[in-house]
């Protein structure tokens, strides 16, 4: 069995394509996990339509969750740099 031959150019394009697909998969995975969390926080009962307040709650839930994540990372760095 012989390996197919790729030019360096092909290899670079392939690597970029795979990297982009990887990034897409990570984003989709995060969206699944955020939808799970925010569904439980924002949707008490199932109506005929998402109403305005549910939609606002979902969008705020995503933003505040990410704020929380940044807050935690920043605070961990502060604690480390003050030598705690």
């Amino acid at each position: 069995m012989s390996q197919p031959q790729f030019s360096e150019n092909d290899q670079r394009e392939l690597a970029q394509f795979l990297e982009a697909e990887n990034a897409k998969a990570r984003i989709q995975q995060t969206v699944h996990s955020l939808t799970d969390t925010c569904w439980d926080k924002c949707i008490a009962k199932v109506n005929n339509k998402l109403d305005r307040s549910e939609e606002a709650c979902l969008s705020n839930c995503v933003e505040r969750f990410l704020d929380t994540s940044l807050f935690i990372v920043k605070r961990l760095e502060d604690l480390r740099s003050t030598g705690m």
Partner: peptide, 30 residues
């Protein structure tokens, strides 16, 4: 550790996510 803190403390400290992270919520998170 960051993931677990995020999950547990967001649940406890931000029961109704609003337009920004309020200072009371930030204190609770700390």
């Amino acid at each position: 550790l960051i993931n677990k803190i995020n999950e547990k403390c967001y649940l406890k400290c931000v029961p109704k996510p609003g337009a920004r992270l309020e200072s009371g919520e930030q204190q609770c998170l700390s």
